Amino acid sequence: MRVLDLLRFCAAFSVVLFHYGQTRAWGTPNAFPALSAVTMFGVYGVRMFFMISGFVILMSAWGRTPGEFAASRISRLYPAYWASVIVLGALAVMGFITDHRPTLSELLANLTMLQHGFRVRDLEIVYWTLWQELIFYALIAVFAAIGITYRRCLAFLGGWLVLLAIAERVNADLLQAVLVPFSAPYFIAGMALYLVHRFGGSLFPWLFVGAGWAVALVQVLGANSAVVQRFGQAFGSALLVGVISLIFLVMIVVALGAFDEIDWRWLTVLGALTYPLYLFHHHIGYLLIGWWHGPLGRWPTLALVIVVVLALSYAVYRLVEVPVQRRLRAALDRSLRAGDGYLDRAG
């Protein structure tokens, strides 16, 4: 499903434009007044990421053991992430990133990707979403241990929704930490849409898509967002409903198979750029904008910085992800099989 690569890239690129339009590296809080009226919605690209994850992760976990699923996720997530921690950590330690100089313990915690659990500061602002993803992966791994089936998926989604409401009602910190309320509506809807894609559009999956949409709107309309502050309560709320609904609508069209015939191989390249772009763009862009916007001007700097971070993302993909992922996955698979040989000898 190459269209998902395109959607992932669009979501990441919208986050890039949001950060570059808002960064204080320009020396002014609103360097692009007209453009920022559009790029400010890029922050909602993260929601698209979460919904795509719900769809793709259920698809990738189906029929796999928890160990196989964990090996696939570790080999996918960690190589580029480790590269970003090393590079950005080095820049921070050398003083190029001045907002915070991390300690050794902070760097080590960030290397694990578990820093949120240890209440350690993220080295990069975008890392917070990875914690949400990790919790989701853990839930899916437990589900895979039980055995993923269509009816169990429905029970899983129903239980998640009910527990979300209970956790909010009683303010249960443990439940909220496990159920990731911010991203849960999108994970739930994405999983339900995968059921629609795989098994057809029967009523139960559509009910969960609708429930995810409703909960997502309750969340965004209940927050004091920048969109409402800029456009006013009535129009801003309408815009938020439109943006969230558009995200759901696009994924619904994907689930119904409207884009199944799209087989443009270059979309896979865009998909490969997505994760490194997301990890590296913020601080690297901040530095380059600070250095270049004075002599070059705003618009040339914005265009050049985007080109540079895209080139950097491709380099990380080719030089880090391609070789390291393959070796790491092979090593993890061998590790999973190590106990099998011991049991055979013992027998």
Results as ranks from 00 to 15, higher is better:
Thr103Ile: 01
Gly347Ile: 02
Trp131Pro: 00
Tyr342Val: 12
Trp26Arg: 05
Val209Met: 11
Met48Gln: 08
Gly200Asn: 09
Phe50Arg: 04
Ile146Phe: 15
Leu104Gln: 06
Leu288Glu: 01
Ala61Met: 03
Leu7Tyr: 13
Val254Glu: 13
Arg329Ser: 07
Val253Asp: 14
Asn30Trp: 09
Leu267Gly: 00
Gln132Ile: 12
Tyr286Cys: 00
Leu7Cys: 11
His281Leu: 08
Leu277Phe: 09
Phe280Lys: 01
Val209Tyr: 09
Gly117Met: 07
Thr98Asn: 04
Met251Cys: 10
Leu111Ala: 12
Ile135Thr: 06
Gly45Ala: 07
Met113Leu: 13
Gly285Tyr: 03
Arg230Ile: 08
Val56Pro: 00
Leu287Cys: 02
Val307Thr: 09
Ala211Gln: 12
Ser75Phe: 05
Phe50Met: 10
Tyr20Glu: 01
Gln229Met: 13
Ile244Val: 15
Leu304Thr: 09
Arg329Ile: 04
Val85Tyr: 06
His100Ser: 10
Ser72Glu: 11
Val320Arg: 04
Gly236Tyr: 01
His100Leu: 12
Tyr78Gln: 09
Tyr314Val: 00
Ser335Gly: 10
Glu133His: 03
Glu124Asp: 15
Glu106Ser: 05
Ala83Lys: 08
Ala12Glu: 09
Val46Gln: 02
Leu279Gly: 04
Val269Leu: 14
Arg337Cys: 05
Ala192Leu: 10
Leu108Ile: 12
Ala138Ser: 11
Leu249Asn: 06
Asp5Gln: 06
Phe50Glu: 00
Val196Met: 12
Phe136Arg: 00
Tyr150Arg: 15
Ser237Phe: 03
Ala272Pro: 00
Arg326His: 13
Leu107Ser: 05
Leu164Ile: 13
Leu107Asn: 03
Leu332Thr: 04
Ala216Asn: 07
Met191Ile: 13
Pro295Asn: 06
Phe235Met: 15
Gly45Gln: 02
Gly242Asp: 12
Gly27Ile: 01
Leu332Asn: 07
Trp62Ser: 07
Gln115His: 15
Thr129Met: 08
Ala216Asp: 07
Ala311Phe: 11
Phe50Ser: 01
Gly89Ser: 10
Tyr44Asn: 05
Val15Ala: 04
Ile247Gly: 01
Ile289Lys: 02
Phe143Val: 04
Trp128Val: 03
Val320Met: 03
Ala138Pro: 01
Tyr278Ser: 05
Ala258His: 15
Tyr275Thr: 00
Thr274Trp: 11
Trp160Leu: 15
Val170Glu: 12
Leu296Tyr: 14
Val253His: 14
Val220Gly: 08
Phe208Cys: 08
Phe49Val: 03
Gly257Ser: 10
Ala272Gln: 09
Arg169Ile: 00
Phe32Cys: 06
Leu130Thr: 03
Phe49Met: 06
Ala211Gly: 13
Ser36Lys: 13
Trp62Asn: 03
Leu164Ser: 13
Leu107Lys: 01
Gly236Arg: 03
Val309Lys: 00
Ala303Asn: 06
Trp213Phe: 13
His197Pro: 01
Gly232Trp: 04
Phe231Ile: 05
Gly232Thr: 09
Leu277Val: 05
Leu217Asp: 07
Leu319Met: 14
Arg119Lys: 15
Ser14Cys: 14
Asp333Val: 13
Met191Glu: 04
Asp173His: 10
Met113Gln: 05
Leu157Trp: 10
Arg265Ser: 08
Leu154Arg: 08
Ala192Phe: 10
Val220Phe: 07
Pro205Arg: 12
Met40Ala: 11
Arg265Phe: 06
Leu239Cys: 14
Leu310Ala: 07
Val162His: 06
Phe208His: 14
Arg318Ala: 14
Arg318Ser: 09
